[in-house]
Amino acid sequence: MAASAKDRQFLAVIGDEDSVTGLLLAGVGHVTDPPDSQRNFLVVDSKTETSTIEKAFENFTQERKDIAIVLINQHVAERIRHSVDSFADPFPAVLEIPSKDHPYDPEKDSVLKRVRRLFGE
């Protein structure tokens, strides 16, 4: 665990256009060297297929070893709730973030749900 944690230095983003734009402005965006040129972000709109999100999520959480934190919009996480809930590894940390049009709802957060459950609420 210790070794793998050291190599993880990027953040990945799955979210709507505004969230991604903002986070990219903060400088989290990274495109790996050609030829494969992988981006560490995915813009989701109403036309994006759920399978695409699913694939990106898998890619960020399992295949890529350089990602420390995956940021995902809560309403996007809702669409792939099963994958998000069943992902329990410590690395990368999956963080549900609010988006502009969808304020943060603690009830849906998979981690907070665990927190609540532990306290028996």
Binding site: R8, Q9, F10, L11, V20, T21, L24, A26, G27, V28, G29, H30, V31, R39, N40, F41, V43, A68, I69
Partner: peptide, 11 residues
């Protein structure tokens, strides 16, 4: 999105 190349913000 297109001009993002290198991550400035890392952990």
């Amino acid at each position: 999105q297109e001009s993002a190349k290198q991550a400035r913000f890392r952990v």
